[in-house]
Design a protein around this nucleic acid. Sequence first.
DNA 1: GTTCCGCATGAATCGATAG
DNA 2: ACTATCGATTCATGCGGAA
Lengths: 285, 285
Amino acid sequence: MKRDVIYNDDCLDRLQKIPDKSVDLVVTSPPYADNRKGVYHGVSISQYVEWFLPISSEIFRVLKDNGSFVLNIKERTVNGERGTYVIELILQMRLQGWLWTEEYIWHKKNCYPGKWSNRFRDAWERCLHFTKQKKFKMYQSAVKVPMGSWASTRLVNLSDTDRVRDKAKNDSGFGKNVSNWIGRNTVYPTNVLHMATECGNVNHSAAFPISLPSWFIKLFTRKGDVVLDPFMGSGTTAIASIQLGRSFIGMEVEEQFYREALQRIQKLGKMQESKPNNSMKHPLT
Amino acid sequence: MKRDVIYNDDCLDRLQKIPDKSVDLVVTSPPYADNRKGVYHGVSISQYVEWFLPISSEIFRVLKDNGSFVLNIKERTVNGERGTYVIELILQMRLQGWLWTEEYIWHKKNCYPGKWSNRFRDAWERCLHFTKQKKFKMYQSAVKVPMGSWASTRLVNLSDTDRVRDKAKNDSGFGKNVSNWIGRNTVYPTNVLHMATECGNVNHSAAFPISLPSWFIKLFTRKGDVVLDPFMGSGTTAIASIQLGRSFIGMEVEEQFYREALQRIQKLGKMQESKPNNSMKHPLT
DNA sequence: GTTCCGCATGAATCGATAG
DNA sequence: ACTATCGATTCATGCGGAA
């Protein structure tokens, strides 16, 4: 039975109450080190790794053996150079038993504007893919991308592809026009994801576009599977999970964000209730 | 006075004969671990870091204080997960005094095909940017990208970049159609580079497209500056440097590649000599 | 001179088979 | 059990020849 639950709790406390090997996928974008101070509870850079390791350890415990953990993170600059805490974290997590299976790149097509004398705009983030085993669940055909030689020229071909990807902006699939492409050739995507950040939500601290968790949810779970986000924020992963018919468990320590997520989920529930073909309800604790 | 030199030598030996702080930019793509066996002298994964550290130490010595070191590399999979030797190398190089200033992503649009049950095609490589100081030379306007006002969406940036990449194929600038861009707005690029690998080119096997070193050479040096590639291969960085009017120092231990590079450079010299406006010659030892 | 189409070619990775 | 080799898989691109 499908069930969605979100908690206004510190994730380390709450994770300890989740049973072993009960989650199919963890997708999260934790608070960045020392970033967004005053908005989120800041974690200092020097303590970032040791702060995160107990959490990743709990995630390891609650994850099914064939599940996946997708960690969206990007080191910020520290004294003019890239911080090393993310790569140190990778090495430490491997000592916990995690396999660093892959690193997907989220290419942010509309990255934050700005100009600096010694660097360009940062247009990418890491989506680190950790697993517990070499063999894990992966449903590649769920994220196939239309492509092929139907178009007249290759230049057109390219832009068609981009257009299709662009349609994936606010949804759980590849967009409304996906039907136009069914029956055509499709190809598997690569480990570089082209997705625009969402500029709409002002309250958000993290511009995590819903297409990002949606993509990983489709790739690593099936309907009814359990998705967990220990740093839920305002609930983007929750929305993606619910839209895709997965069960969701969310945790968020800041009450402000928790309420925002609750509202978004309830609003979604009502929208879905009002649809004739979807009477599913989403009980929330 | 401009001068180009290439050596058929092991780079560690040859680097020791280069004076301190005499190089403005090092751009290189070292042999990847355990790769191209039989073609190149393979470097095993387990020894990769300790093999590279003496070389990066010499590079540190010969680099000017305001210079840059761009290292193009990508870790292989090791037993089904990503190898950690590249991120370990970053940490070790910082202990040598390097600043890990930035990580540019080279998005390979035409990555190697294939299908596996646990990963997609790998479409990106790291271009690690190391410096000796927080302040270093960077000429951002040299790599500004034309931004057309004809397109309406954020796709523009991507597709424009691609178009530029296409035109930049055999050149030192933005290609023959540069006139098309004059008068239009230009924007600064981001730290994600969209470039296709060169394929189908029968003469040399350079997976390194010339637009990649060209981009960094334009960004981090001016005409007359000294560019060094300790793993020259068939000389793609050499060609880029010479085309852009920089002095080049190249090292390549394999005679086969060395000869190939020599031929390409000499051919380029003749081409440039024959041009009315360019009487510059390129003496080679 | 264009445009169009066929074809070879990759810094790959996995799994099976063999020593 | 652990390493070396080989076949299968897959697709964007440049080039050359054809229309």
